[in-house]
Design a protein around this nucleic acid. Structure first.
Lengths: 195, 195
DNA sequence: GGACTGACAGATATTGAAACCTGTCAGTCC
DNA sequence: GGACTGACAGGTTTCAATATCTGTCAGTCC
């Protein structure tokens, strides 16, 4: 559709559009090719399988939504408030996506469920950022000594209700902010004095 | 099938059998009636709708699995270790169900997803037990002062990965016990010194 | 008289044939 | 020669006809 040769980038953009229009169940590789004005064989020159194409779209989406969080984690500020803002930012980003366009969010939730690998890498990135903040906090003396890796996992697990898409339906409930605040406080208090 | 008049109890037992054999998608009221040797009209004398029948089966199952937990919560022992044992018992009960008979567990997970009310009551019961332990802990001086209701919710939320059926697939992973221990320790440390 | 039956209407699920999709590859075109 | 096409085999999805199910109720039976 664009200038000369077909690029992976163009295919990904077209695939996003097709997914948006038809949903994850009905979007086909033929639809993507049609949107680009090429044969579907051309798409297979750039992506080995439909699953790989969908995984690539998922990775793009995850990366885009994740922008900004890494910077926040690396900020030079007291670890406790930094962790709280980081968790709040993660929750807020996901919640906005889920509430602004529920269908698109559902589409990407399905896609994410298809490729463990992509999701696993995303989670590893999040864990790394939490571990960074925790290590800083221990160095600052704000958190009790601990294994940052293991504790980062505990923090991510404990806040699952506020980032795991499985819970998206609960994110519009009025008491969700209270619940988020309570879990955050509990986790931060726990970090201050881990047993 | 049994002695004289058809009882709700017999219908529930027969329904469990039918669900076990055919799964949640294919089990019908006609199947239940056939298993009991009666017409399906008789079943509707005891339960107004199929949904109500399924909700009753779900409640029974939840209650049965919950047996023992309430006693544990009411025990006369230090709150921190009591809470840890209570959480471990909850996790262990769910995990055993999920691993012993995955199909049956999946069946009941589907059923639970159908009736918010029944699940809500079950969660309220769990929250009450946690709140009881927390209130005891505050009275004992082991936990920092807090609103037991709100904090109970935070504890249940924070440990969601270890009791919410949505996570059942992860319960056979080797590192799950480490993760459980880490979250428990974090939560208990948080209760000791809530901010 | 009250527990139960069985036939019924409308809604939902099953089935099998036809349409479509995925992934491949020999061949076309610059 | 490398990007692209288009026809193809095998597998999956769709669609409409058919069968089954849910929930009701007038009537049967002890």
């Amino acid at each position: 559709m664009a200038a000369g040769a077909l690029t992976a980038e163009e295919i990904l953009a077209a695939t996003e559009g097709v997914l948006r229009r038809y949903g994850p169940a009905k979007a086909t590789v033929v639809d993507v090719a049609r949107a680009l004005g090429v044969s579907h064989g051309s798409v297979y020159r750039h992506f080995p399988t439909k699953a790989a194409l969908r995984a690539a779209v998922t990775r793009r989406w995850l990366d885009r939504n994740h922008a900004g969080l890494a910077e926040l984690a690396a900020e030079d500020s007291p670890a406790p408030e930094r962790l709280r803002r980081w968790l709040a930012a993660l929750f807020e980003a996901k919640r906005r996506k889920a509430l602004d366009d529920p269908e698109l969010f559902a589409t990407y939730t399905v896609l994410a469920g298809e490729s463990d690998t992509v999701v696993g890498e995303h989670i590893d990135a999040l864990l790394g950022e939490i571990a960074l903040i925790i290590a800083d906090g221990v160095a600052q003396g704000a958190f009790a000594p601990c294994d940052p890796q293991v504790t980062a996992r505990a923090v991510l697990d404990a806040t699952g209700r506020f980032h795991n898409p499985l819970y998206a339906a609960e994110w519009s409930a009025p008491e969700i902010d209270t619940a988020f605040g309570a879990v955050c406080s509990l986790v931060l208090a726990g970090l201050r004095a881990t047993g």
